[in-house]
């Protein structure tokens, strides 16, 4: 009884800020301007299939890159002394205290022609164009979302029972084997939540592509932003389709994750 009472505020919160808005998006997506039932918004939404695919592709690449960078880093951090660990994690978090737009803007300045990167590479004879393309968008996204990959993996890895590692060593495993048989399988829950926390927001992100991309780099989040200007119905329909895409992804992710954990 007591626990039920405690959960009331959270239930109200869920209802007001999650359930009702979801229902409203649903209603908006399935109606037209006159308020009657219509699938027109979805017909329009599917005209942006290429942008959907591109956004999911960019999100996927960013997630993979985040994982490749964050996983070894998390492992290295867990090997440090506790006080050093706290400092390093703190240092990795500090950029997140700054406004998201400012950080993206900093990348614009870093990558622009005549900017620091260009000047540096030109000095050793490499000339190229580093901003206003898909690569720049992915760099921005990886920078933006890397901490969301790092923290869950680090937390899970830090909790691994040292006894298990010692046991494996006692039974004759070398460093590589300890990692493969003990550390990696036990860190999978962290990887799963890391992937979820990076993929979901990066698939629906906006503004990043506007700042770092060229004319062809427009993401589905930007489309929703622009369409909502004048037509809520198409905007809601696109959001709904995006949510379904993400839901399918999460379900697949969880299936995969469970199997791995069992094996």
């Amino acid at each position: 009884m007591k626990s039920k009472l405690l959960s009331v505020p959270y239930l109200i919160w869920m209802l007001v800020f999650t359930m009702i808005p979801l229902v409203m998006i649903g209603i908006t997506a399935f109606t037209d301007n006159s308020g009657s039932f219509s699938l027109e918004a979805f017909t329009s939404a599917f005209e942006y299939t290429n942008v959907f695919l591109k956004s999911l592709w960019i999100a996927l690449l960013s997630t993979v890159l985040c994982l490749i960078i964050a996983y070894p880093l998390a492992y290295i951090i867990t090997q440090m002394r506790e006080s050093t660990q706290n400092t390093v994690v703190m240092l990795l978090m500090i950029p997140m205290w700054m406004n998201f737009l400012l950080r993206i803007y900093a990348w614009v300045l870093l990558l622009q022609s005549g900017g620091p990167l260009d000047t540096l590479l030109s000095a050793i004879g490499i000339h190229g164009n580093y901003s206003n393309n898909t690569g720049a968008v992915i760099v921005g996204m990886v920078y933006e979302y890397m901490p969301f990959m790092l923290l869950p993996i680090y937390t899970v890895m830090g909790k691994i029972d040292k006894g298990l590692i010692e046991a494996a060593q006692d039974l004759g495993s070398n460093k590589m084997m300890v990692f493969r048989k003990v550390v990696f399988p036990l860190s999978i829950p962290g990887i799963i939540s890391g992937i979820t926390m990076v993929f979901v927001p990066s698939a629906s992100t906006f503004v990043v592509a506007q700042y770092l991309g060229g004319t062809d780099d427009i993401m589905i989040g930007d489309i929703i932003d622009k369409i909502f200007f004048t037509n809520n119905h198409i905007g809601a329909a696109i959001s709904l389709v995006l949510m379904i895409f993400i839901l399918v992804f999460l379900v697949l992710m969880n299936l995969f994750g469970d199997e791995e954990a069992i094996a």
Binding site: E47, F229, T230
Partner: peptide
């Protein structure tokens, strides 16, 4: 008119989305 403006906005988004 609202529908003309809506059309304009949508066409512009489409140009960018292509």
């Amino acid at each position: 008119d609202a529908d003309v403006y809506e059309y304009m906005q949508e066409q512009f988004v489409k140009i960018q989305a292509e």
